[in-house]
Structures are given as structure tokens and as C-alpha cells.
Design a protein around this nucleic acid. Sequence first.
DNA 1: GCCGTTTTCGGCCCGACTGTTTTCAGTCG
Length: 582
Amino acid sequence: MDKTEVAAVLEEIALLLELKGENAFKSRAYKTAARTLETLPEDLGRLVAEDRLGTVPGIGDALRQKITELVTTGKLAYHEKLRAEFPPGLFDLLDLPGLGPKKVKALYEQLHISDIAGLEAACREKKLESLAGFGAKTEANLLLSIEQRRSYQSQHRLGDVLDLAEDLVDTLRTHPDIHRVSIAGSLRRGKEVVKDIDLLASSAPEKAKGILDDFVALPQVTRILGHGGTKASVILADGLQCDLRVVPDRDFATALHHFTGSKEHNVALRQRAISKGMKLSEWGLFKTDKEGNEVEKLPIYTEEELFHELGLDPIPPELRENLGEIEAAEHGKIPRLVEWTELRGAFHNHTNASDGTATLEQMAAAAAGIGLAYFGLADHSKSSFQANGLDEARFETQLAEIAKFNANPDREIRLFSGVECDILKEGKLDFDDAFLAKFDYVVASLHAGFTKDEEEMTRRLTRAMENKYVTILGHATGRLLLRREGYPVHLDKLIDCAAETGTWIELNANPYRLDMDWRWWHKARDKGVKCVVSADAHRPSDLAYLKLGVTLARKGWLRKGDVMNTLPVGKMEEELKRKKGR
DNA sequence: GCCGTTTTCGGCCCGACTGTTTTCAGTCG
């Protein structure tokens, strides 16, 4: 077992101990140990082999033995014994907002509720009200959460699906009978949440059946829903549906356009075709006679040719939502959208000083590894206790580390010093201005007090943005996709405030966030608001989120010039100085 | 469970909010 797997087992033990009602500090010891392992700079196997586990802070005798057992045998008797004491459905209950270990324990022991279905029934029969600490409101809230969870179940986050889809396309591309293959559907349009994976391939018509036979036999497939001559539907892991259509190559471009959508974009484009004496469908673009009968099929090999025939500039898939892209394409106003390779740096990143898993050096090396020229550290501020936020003294230490790093002439990347500073009550910041002035930049984010009304939340955020040391507004709404709504906030007012104060707004590229939402960026851009695409990286591999973030920036009509972290390092240094001096 | 001792037990991270209470437990960030 590697350290990530061991850490996961320790996390689960911590949870099981809480369910059991054990000493909370004992549970915390397991959690701490799990975190320590995740951030361990050394190889765990070697540490165990050389019997040096006991020297790691937070790992005493008991944990040393258990970790050793896990590493050497791959399992742990203690863990399995604990696990056997509870039905697996209890873990689903813990996922529901408002239910923690104590309440789940009460539900299980007193009402014998062991899964979501049981909880739902009990809520409907108003059985929870008999328990101490539970009431009518709790029942109503839980029923709502269960309903929400159900509606989320058929949906998937873009960032969780994209890699899987790209792998499938890569596999299909190697098929000898496939000419062209592409992702289609909302996934290709970069929608933040998708229902399924739509794939389109082209081949000689007589080869389609064989291609689909091979597709449904792929190892990723867990269930076959349908398997015909031109289309197959399968279920992949996590209940994710994937459809593959195979069309003749001459129909590929129009089919790809059709299955990419959106429906609204397609309807508008079909109307445009009619107005030009043509007819558009998934099967092609046709010239029509006065009665609207097809008289000639136009040869269309690419989507670009299709748009051209309709008198339009090419429209990138991300823009196809019928939100003005057709008018723009008609007038040569489709922007050249930002490309992910144009990013030169990133600003919102964590290290193991707060809640990240890697050291400053490891994060910097990873950033240099993906070709960035500069990299900003923004660990949590002191009020984020849960995230091990840094106080002034610890930040002073980190500032010194960063200065030392930058002083090395052989360094691979330029570091910028920052902080993800908590926005407190009434928009006050977690540090005073004199201290904030020490950083190259400040990301201001809200992590607590989400329950105020829209007016007050908006006031808190705008007040924070009015501070001259605040460079970037972090995750503007705090939403977690398919998990929780954002806090209520008047985004129009935030955008206006950003325009007035020159504050940049973050596009947080964590797959759960993708916040600020793409629907607002076009408007923000037109008001002169600048975007920063952030990975909000907590480990080196999270930097891959930047690419996802750029997809959403594109969906928001952003150009290279609208995204600040496309600036080269010298220009960025000037910008940051200018902002602080404003 | 870990750790550090005034060496073998007692402390271990805070604050807001909700829904339940009628002064507080549980959850969350």
C-alpha cells in the first residue's frame, strides 16, 4: 500500500471511531496521521523498512504498528473489525449536509436507520422527532437534502468526466476502421456539469457494427444499455452513461455539430439555414426548393465549412449556447479565445504550511514542470483554523522562505508571495493593512458565515474588494457543484465593484467550484473586469485544473488579454506593484 | 492516540450558526 491508500484507511478509521463515540482526540490523532502521511516528503515504504516511522511527529507506538501492518500486508485487522461493526450505508448518511457522526450514531442505534432509504422513510413518518436533538425542521431539511442528492445523482462534474472521455477517444482513435472520432455534447461545450458522455465516430457504413461491438467490450464498460447498428449506450464506472454514434464520414461534420448542440444553438442555426434557402439537420446541409424539399446535399467536411456556408465565422464549441454567438459570427466579432498554453503563472495555491499536501519547493517544481514562469503562494490566513491557517509570525517565516527561493539565481520559477485572506464579518479582513502590504498580492475569500442574506453577503465582499491591498476576489459564490449551492450574492454588484476598484476576479478551476460561473464573465469582461484562472491547488497534481479553468474562461468569451495570468513575468511584476500603489 | 512533562496523566484548535432547547449540542468551515 502506498501512502495515499494508507492515509485513506486512517481517515476511515477516524470516522468509524467517531461513529462509535470514541474519544474525539483519538479520532483526531488518526486524522492528523493521515494528513501527515499525505504530506510526507519521503517514501513511506522506506520509512517502514528502516523502522523510522516513530520519528515522524504525530505517529506514536500504536499508529506505527498499524501503518506498518498496512504497508507490509495491505490490510489492517483493527480496521476490518471496526468496519464490520457498521453497515456500509452509514457512510452515505454522513454525506448529507447537517448529519455528522453523532447524529448518525443516534439514528442507527435508536431507530435502526442504516441507509438513505431508511432515513427518508423515517422522516416521512415523522419518527425522528422522538429523538433528542431532532425536530420537525431537521426532518424537513433532511428530506430536502435527500431529494437534492437524488437529482444530483444523474449528473457529473465536468472535471470528473473529461479525462475519462479523452481516454475513450484516444482508445477509439486507434481503431483501424474509425476515420474520425470526437467528444460531442455538453462535454465538448465545456458545461460545468454533464449528464453523460457523447462520442461520435465516422467509418465506412459496413464497419459501424464491428466498431460498436468493440466499444461495448471495452474494459471501462460496466453495463450495456443498448447496442444497435449505429449507436451503443453503455454505463461506465460511477453510473456514468456514455453513448457512441457511428456515422458515414461524409456526415461527420454536420453530425458533430448537431450532437454538440446546444439545442438552442441548433434551433437558431436551422432557422438561419431556412432563411438562406437551405435545410440543416444531423444528416447534412441541403439546398431546398420553394416548397422546402431537399434538392442538393452540400459537401461539408468540417464544421468550419458548415459555418462558412451559412455566412458565419467558425464558432468554438464552448460558445454554442445561443447567447449571441451567431450574431457575433455574422459580424466577424467572434473573439480569439484564450488558450490554456497561454497561461504564464498561477496565483491561488496552497502548501503544507496550511492545508496543502506539498512543500513550497515541491509546488514550485510542479508549476515549473508544466511550463509556468511564475507561481503565487496563497496559504490560508489565521481565521481558517480548520485549514491550519497561518498567523502573522508563520507568514513572516514563509515570506523569508520565498525571498530566499527567489534570491537563488538558478531557480526555475519566480515565486510571488500571497495570502488567501479570510473575509470576516462586515467585510473586515483577517490581517490589518500594514501586514497585508507585505505580500506581493492578496486573494480575499469567504469561508464562513454563509447564511446571511444577499445584501449583507454582497456588502461583505464589496467592502473587502475596496481594500487597496486586495488584488483578487477568490471563489465569488462559494458553490460546490452537485454538492451545495453558493452563498447568496449579487454578482452584478460584485462585478461593478471589481470594475471600480480594479480588483481581479478569480475563475477558480477546482472541478467542484468553477466559480465565478461562466455565465457572468462576458458581462464582466465588457465592463473591463480582469480574470485570473486559479487552480486553488492543494497538491502538485491539482495544477492540472488550470486547463479546465481555461475551458470555462473560453466559455465565458474571455480572450488572452482578459486573463491576467497570461502576462509574462516582468509585466506581472509591474501590474502587482501598480495595484498595491493605487 | 499523541505528546510532554511540574514523568505517567491531562490537555489536545476556533467561532459561527442551526435547531433544538430554555442554555446547549452538533455541524461546518
